[in-house]
Protein backbone atom coordinates (compact mmCIF):
# COMPACT_ATOMS: atom_id res chain seq x y z
CA UNK A 1 0.00 0.00 0.00
CA UNK A 2 2.85 2.35 0.83
CA UNK A 3 4.04 1.87 -2.67
CA UNK A 4 0.78 3.33 -3.93
CA UNK A 5 0.65 6.18 -1.48
CA UNK A 6 4.14 7.22 -2.44
CA UNK A 7 3.23 7.79 -6.03
CA UNK A 8 -0.22 9.16 -5.37
CA UNK A 9 0.62 12.90 -5.42
CA UNK A 10 2.43 12.53 -8.73
CA UNK A 11 -0.40 10.44 -10.15
CA UNK A 12 -2.96 13.03 -9.14
CA UNK A 13 -0.98 15.68 -10.97
CA UNK A 14 -0.63 13.34 -13.96
CA UNK A 15 -4.36 12.83 -13.96
CA UNK A 16 -5.23 16.50 -13.74
CA UNK A 17 -2.87 17.46 -16.54
CA UNK A 18 -4.07 14.65 -18.77
CA UNK A 19 -7.59 15.70 -17.85
CA UNK A 20 -6.83 19.20 -19.11
CA UNK A 21 -5.99 17.74 -22.49
CA UNK A 22 -9.20 15.72 -22.61
CA UNK A 23 -11.24 18.71 -21.50
CA UNK A 24 -9.77 20.80 -24.29
CA UNK A 25 -10.83 18.25 -26.90
CA UNK A 26 -14.19 17.65 -25.27
CA UNK A 27 -15.27 21.29 -25.46
CA UNK A 28 -15.43 21.19 -29.25
CA UNK A 29 -17.57 18.08 -29.19
CA UNK A 30 -19.85 19.53 -26.60
CA UNK A 31 -20.43 22.78 -28.45
CA UNK A 32 -21.55 21.09 -31.62
CA UNK A 33 -23.71 18.70 -29.68
CA UNK A 34 -25.30 21.52 -27.72
CA UNK A 35 -26.60 23.12 -30.89
CA UNK A 36 -27.28 20.24 -33.22
CA UNK A 37 -27.63 17.31 -30.81
CA UNK A 38 -25.29 15.33 -32.99
CA UNK A 39 -22.05 13.59 -32.26
CA UNK A 40 -19.56 15.01 -34.66
CA UNK A 41 -17.52 11.85 -35.18
CA UNK A 42 -15.30 13.79 -37.56
CA UNK A 43 -14.18 16.15 -34.81
CA UNK A 44 -11.23 13.91 -34.02
CA UNK A 45 -10.02 14.21 -37.61
CA UNK A 46 -10.52 17.98 -37.64
CA UNK A 47 -8.44 18.05 -34.49
CA UNK A 48 -5.74 15.98 -36.17
CA UNK A 49 -5.62 18.26 -39.21
CA UNK A 50 -5.33 21.27 -36.91
CA UNK A 51 -2.31 19.61 -35.37
CA UNK A 52 -0.77 19.04 -38.78
CA UNK A 53 -1.34 22.69 -39.66
CA UNK A 54 0.42 23.76 -36.48
CA UNK A 55 3.26 21.40 -37.27
CA UNK A 56 3.65 22.83 -40.77
CA UNK A 57 3.77 26.37 -39.43
CA UNK A 58 6.44 25.40 -36.94
CA UNK A 59 8.28 23.37 -39.53
CA UNK A 60 8.41 26.22 -42.04
CA UNK A 61 9.51 28.72 -39.41
CA UNK A 62 12.11 26.24 -38.26
CA UNK A 63 13.39 25.74 -41.78
CA UNK A 64 13.58 29.47 -42.40
CA UNK A 65 15.48 29.81 -39.14
CA UNK A 66 12.80 32.14 -37.96
CA UNK A 67 12.69 30.59 -34.54
CA UNK A 68 14.73 33.47 -33.28
CA UNK A 69 11.30 35.05 -33.06
CA UNK A 70 9.70 35.22 -29.71
CA UNK A 71 8.51 31.77 -28.65
CA UNK A 72 5.15 33.19 -27.64
CA UNK A 73 4.72 34.69 -31.08
CA UNK A 74 5.57 31.37 -32.71
CA UNK A 75 3.06 29.49 -30.61
CA UNK A 76 0.44 32.14 -31.25
CA UNK A 77 1.05 31.86 -34.98
CA UNK A 78 0.69 28.10 -34.85
CA UNK A 79 -2.53 28.32 -32.90
CA UNK A 80 -4.05 30.96 -35.15
CA UNK A 81 -3.29 29.06 -38.33
CA UNK A 82 -4.49 25.77 -36.89
CA UNK A 83 -7.71 27.38 -35.70
CA UNK A 84 -8.33 28.96 -39.07
CA UNK A 85 -7.74 25.77 -41.04
CA UNK A 86 -9.71 23.49 -38.77
CA UNK A 87 -12.47 26.06 -38.38
CA UNK A 88 -12.92 26.33 -42.11
CA UNK A 89 -12.71 22.58 -42.44
CA UNK A 90 -15.44 22.22 -39.84
CA UNK A 91 -17.70 24.61 -41.72
CA UNK A 92 -17.03 22.75 -44.95
CA UNK A 93 -17.88 19.43 -43.37
CA UNK A 94 -21.09 20.82 -42.00
CA UNK A 95 -22.05 22.21 -45.39
CA UNK A 96 -21.28 19.06 -47.35
CA UNK A 97 -22.05 16.19 -45.04
CA UNK A 98 -24.40 17.38 -42.31
CA UNK A 99 -26.63 20.14 -43.60
CA UNK A 100 -28.36 17.99 -46.23
CA UNK A 101 -29.15 15.54 -43.44
CA UNK A 102 -30.51 17.91 -40.85
CA UNK A 103 -33.95 16.32 -40.91
CA UNK A 104 -32.77 12.78 -41.52
CA UNK A 105 -32.75 10.10 -38.82
CA UNK A 106 -29.98 10.37 -36.29
CA UNK A 107 -28.23 7.23 -37.42
CA UNK A 108 -27.74 8.60 -40.94
CA UNK A 109 -26.10 11.72 -39.59
CA UNK A 110 -23.80 9.67 -37.44
CA UNK A 111 -22.78 7.48 -40.35
CA UNK A 112 -22.20 10.47 -42.56
CA UNK A 113 -19.89 11.83 -39.86
CA UNK A 114 -18.14 8.49 -39.79
CA UNK A 115 -17.69 8.67 -43.54
CA UNK A 116 -16.11 12.10 -43.24
CA UNK A 117 -13.83 10.80 -40.54
CA UNK A 118 -12.67 7.82 -42.62
CA UNK A 119 -12.12 10.08 -45.60
CA UNK A 120 -10.10 12.72 -43.77
CA UNK A 121 -7.94 10.17 -42.01
CA UNK A 122 -6.99 8.44 -45.22
CA UNK A 123 -6.69 11.73 -47.06
CA UNK A 124 -3.96 12.75 -44.65
CA UNK A 125 -2.45 9.28 -44.86
CA UNK A 126 -2.24 9.63 -48.61
CA UNK A 127 -0.91 13.15 -48.85
CA UNK A 128 1.11 13.49 -45.67
CA UNK A 129 2.23 9.90 -45.31
CA UNK A 130 1.96 7.64 -42.32
CA UNK A 131 4.97 9.05 -40.54
CA UNK A 132 4.66 10.71 -37.17
CA UNK A 133 5.61 14.40 -37.19
CA UNK A 134 7.63 15.64 -34.24
CA UNK A 135 7.42 19.16 -32.88
CA UNK A 136 10.83 20.59 -32.02
CA UNK A 137 9.67 22.13 -28.76
CA UNK A 138 13.11 22.56 -27.22
CA UNK A 139 13.50 25.74 -29.20
CA UNK A 140 10.23 27.10 -27.88
CA UNK A 141 10.38 26.39 -24.19
CA UNK A 142 13.57 27.25 -22.33
CA UNK A 143 15.29 24.36 -20.61
CA UNK A 144 14.76 25.82 -17.16
CA UNK A 145 11.00 25.97 -17.63
CA UNK A 146 10.54 22.57 -19.21
CA UNK A 147 10.29 20.63 -16.01
CA UNK A 148 9.04 22.08 -12.77
CA UNK A 149 9.75 20.23 -9.54
CA UNK A 150 7.51 20.88 -6.57
CA UNK A 151 8.40 18.69 -3.64
CA UNK A 152 7.87 15.09 -4.67
CA UNK A 153 5.87 16.15 -7.70
CA UNK A 154 7.12 16.82 -11.20
CA UNK A 155 5.23 18.47 -13.99
CA UNK A 156 6.14 20.10 -17.24
CA UNK A 157 5.57 23.67 -18.25
CA UNK A 158 3.47 22.72 -21.23
CA UNK A 159 1.06 20.82 -19.02
CA UNK A 160 0.45 23.85 -16.88
CA UNK A 161 -0.03 25.89 -20.03
CA UNK A 162 -2.66 23.45 -21.32
CA UNK A 163 -4.68 23.76 -18.14
CA UNK A 164 -4.41 27.55 -18.10
CA UNK A 165 -5.49 27.79 -21.74
CA UNK A 166 -8.32 25.41 -21.03
CA UNK A 167 -9.68 27.63 -18.28
CA UNK A 168 -9.20 30.78 -20.36
CA UNK A 169 -11.11 29.26 -23.25
CA UNK A 170 -13.88 28.24 -20.92
CA UNK A 171 -14.15 31.71 -19.49
CA UNK A 172 -14.09 33.31 -22.93
CA UNK A 173 -16.69 30.95 -24.28
CA UNK A 174 -19.09 31.36 -21.42
CA UNK A 175 -18.85 35.13 -21.62
CA UNK A 176 -19.53 34.97 -25.32
CA UNK A 177 -22.46 32.62 -24.96
CA UNK A 178 -23.97 34.46 -22.02
CA UNK A 179 -23.64 38.06 -23.02
CA UNK A 180 -23.31 38.60 -26.74
CA UNK A 181 -26.10 38.72 -29.28
CA UNK A 182 -24.46 35.86 -31.14
CA UNK A 183 -24.39 33.84 -27.95
CA UNK A 184 -28.07 34.50 -27.40
CA UNK A 185 -28.84 33.32 -30.92
CA UNK A 186 -26.76 30.22 -30.29
CA UNK A 187 -28.66 29.44 -27.14
CA UNK A 188 -31.94 29.94 -28.91
CA UNK A 189 -30.87 27.61 -31.70
CA UNK A 190 -29.79 25.05 -29.14
CA UNK A 191 -33.21 25.17 -27.53
CA UNK A 192 -35.20 24.73 -30.69
CA UNK A 193 -33.88 25.13 -34.20
CA UNK A 194 -37.25 25.74 -35.81
CA UNK A 195 -38.55 28.24 -33.30
CA UNK A 196 -35.26 30.10 -33.44
CA UNK A 197 -35.68 30.32 -37.19
CA UNK A 198 -39.21 31.71 -36.75
CA UNK A 199 -37.84 34.34 -34.42
CA UNK A 200 -35.57 35.63 -37.12
CA UNK A 201 -32.37 33.84 -36.17
CA UNK A 202 -30.42 32.86 -39.25
CA UNK A 203 -30.07 29.27 -38.14
CA UNK A 204 -27.76 28.19 -40.94
CA UNK A 205 -25.37 30.96 -40.08
CA UNK A 206 -25.46 30.16 -36.38
CA UNK A 207 -24.76 26.52 -37.03
CA UNK A 208 -21.93 27.52 -39.30
CA UNK A 209 -20.47 29.73 -36.58
CA UNK A 210 -20.81 26.96 -34.03
CA UNK A 211 -19.02 24.55 -36.28
CA UNK A 212 -16.34 27.10 -36.92
CA UNK A 213 -15.77 27.78 -33.23
CA UNK A 214 -16.02 24.15 -32.18
CA UNK A 215 -13.61 22.99 -34.87
CA UNK A 216 -11.25 25.90 -34.31
CA UNK A 217 -11.11 24.95 -30.64
CA UNK A 218 -10.23 21.45 -31.74
CA UNK A 219 -7.42 22.85 -33.86
CA UNK A 220 -6.10 24.93 -30.99
CA UNK A 221 -6.29 21.94 -28.69
CA UNK A 222 -4.38 19.89 -31.20
CA UNK A 223 -1.52 22.40 -31.39
CA UNK A 224 -1.28 22.56 -27.62
CA UNK A 225 -1.36 18.80 -27.31
CA UNK A 226 1.21 18.62 -30.09
CA UNK A 227 3.50 20.94 -28.17
CA UNK A 228 2.90 18.94 -25.02
CA UNK A 229 3.38 15.44 -26.41
CA UNK A 230 5.59 16.66 -29.27
CA UNK A 231 3.88 14.57 -31.94
CA UNK A 232 1.07 14.42 -34.41
CA UNK A 233 0.19 11.76 -36.97
CA UNK A 234 -2.70 10.85 -39.20
CA UNK A 235 -4.13 8.43 -36.65
CA UNK A 236 -4.09 10.90 -33.77
CA UNK A 237 -7.72 11.83 -34.30
CA UNK A 238 -9.17 8.46 -33.41
CA UNK A 239 -7.74 8.12 -29.91
CA UNK A 240 -8.17 11.81 -29.16
CA UNK A 241 -11.69 11.78 -30.49
CA UNK A 242 -12.66 8.74 -28.47
CA UNK A 243 -11.33 10.23 -25.25
CA UNK A 244 -12.64 13.68 -26.02
CA UNK A 245 -16.13 12.54 -26.60
CA UNK A 246 -16.07 10.14 -23.70
CA UNK A 247 -15.17 13.13 -21.56
CA UNK A 248 -17.90 15.24 -23.13
CA UNK A 249 -20.53 12.60 -22.53
CA UNK A 250 -19.31 11.86 -19.04
CA UNK A 251 -19.73 15.49 -18.08
CA UNK A 252 -23.07 15.84 -19.78
CA UNK A 253 -22.78 16.49 -23.44
CA UNK A 254 -23.86 19.93 -24.59
CA UNK A 255 -22.73 21.46 -21.32
CA UNK A 256 -19.37 23.21 -21.56
CA UNK A 257 -18.56 23.03 -17.86
CA UNK A 258 -19.59 19.41 -18.00
CA UNK A 259 -17.08 18.81 -20.77
CA UNK A 260 -14.33 20.19 -18.58
CA UNK A 261 -15.40 18.25 -15.56
CA UNK A 262 -15.68 15.13 -17.68
CA UNK A 263 -12.18 15.67 -18.99
CA UNK A 264 -10.70 15.95 -15.53
CA UNK A 265 -12.66 13.00 -14.19
CA UNK A 266 -11.50 10.90 -17.11
CA UNK A 267 -7.87 11.96 -16.76
CA UNK A 268 -7.84 11.34 -13.04
CA UNK A 269 -9.55 7.99 -13.34
CA UNK A 270 -6.97 6.87 -15.88
CA UNK A 271 -4.03 7.95 -13.76
CA UNK A 272 -5.46 6.30 -10.68
CA UNK A 273 -6.34 3.18 -12.63
CA UNK A 274 -2.74 2.89 -13.74
CA UNK A 275 -1.68 3.29 -10.12
CA UNK A 276 -3.72 0.39 -8.86
CA UNK A 277 -4.09 -1.93 -11.87
CA UNK A 278 -1.91 -2.97 -14.78
CA UNK A 279 -1.71 -0.02 -17.14
CA UNK A 280 -3.49 -1.95 -19.87
CA UNK A 281 -6.69 -1.68 -17.87
CA UNK A 282 -6.73 2.09 -17.62
CA UNK A 283 -9.15 2.42 -20.50
CA UNK A 284 -11.28 -0.35 -19.08
CA UNK A 285 -11.59 1.63 -15.86
CA UNK A 286 -12.34 4.82 -17.77
CA UNK A 287 -15.07 3.17 -19.80
CA UNK A 288 -16.55 1.40 -16.80
CA UNK A 289 -16.85 4.78 -15.10
CA UNK A 290 -18.51 6.17 -18.21
CA UNK A 291 -21.00 3.34 -18.29
CA UNK A 292 -21.72 3.57 -14.60
CA UNK A 293 -22.30 7.32 -14.78
CA UNK A 294 -24.58 7.02 -17.77
CA UNK A 295 -26.61 4.26 -16.21
CA UNK A 296 -27.09 6.17 -12.99
CA UNK A 297 -27.37 9.60 -14.60
CA UNK A 298 -28.17 9.07 -18.26
CA UNK A 299 -27.73 12.77 -18.94
CA UNK A 300 -24.14 12.92 -17.61
CA UNK A 301 -22.63 14.52 -14.55
CA UNK A 302 -23.67 18.10 -15.27
CA UNK A 303 -26.07 17.71 -18.15
CA UNK A 304 -29.68 18.63 -17.78
CA UNK A 305 -32.37 16.05 -17.96
CA UNK A 306 -34.62 17.04 -20.79
CA UNK A 307 -37.94 15.27 -20.59
CA UNK A 308 -39.40 14.31 -23.89
CA UNK A 309 -42.19 16.49 -25.13
CA UNK A 310 -45.41 14.55 -25.41
Amino acid sequence: MDMFLEQLPQQLVNGITLGGVYALIAIGYSMVYGILSMLNFAHGEVYMIGGFTGWWVLHLLYRENALAMNAVAVIALMVVFAMAVSGILGVLIERVAYRPLRHAPRINLLLSALGVSIFLQNFVLTFQGAKVRSFPVAALVPESLRVIQLGPVVFSFMRVLVIVVCFCLMAGLSIMIKSTKLGKAMRATAQDVETAAFMGVDVDRIIMVVFFIGSALGGAASVLVGLLFTQVDYYAGFAAGLKGFTAAVLGGIGNLYGAMLGGFVLGLSEALAVTFFPAAYKDVVAFVILIAVLILRPWGLMGEKSPEKV
Partner: peptide, 20 residues
Protein backbone atom coordinates in the same frame (compact mmCIF):
# COMPACT_ATOMS: atom_id res chain seq x y z
CA UNK B 1 6.37 -5.32 -16.08
CA UNK B 2 3.57 -3.21 -17.46
CA UNK B 3 2.16 -2.17 -20.80
CA UNK B 4 1.77 1.00 -22.79
CA UNK B 5 -0.75 1.87 -25.45
CA UNK B 6 0.92 3.01 -28.64
CA UNK B 7 -0.15 6.44 -29.78
CA UNK B 8 -1.53 7.31 -26.35
CA UNK B 9 1.25 9.87 -26.10
CA UNK B 10 1.04 10.34 -22.36
CA UNK B 11 3.09 7.76 -20.51
CA UNK B 12 3.36 9.79 -17.29
CA UNK B 13 1.05 7.54 -15.24
CA UNK B 14 2.81 4.29 -16.09
CA UNK B 15 6.25 5.92 -15.91
CA UNK B 16 5.40 7.19 -12.45
CA UNK B 17 4.95 3.56 -11.49
CA UNK B 18 8.32 2.77 -13.01
CA UNK B 19 9.91 5.62 -11.10
CA UNK B 20 8.44 4.24 -7.93
Amino acid sequence: QDTIVAGAKDFYPVLTKVKN
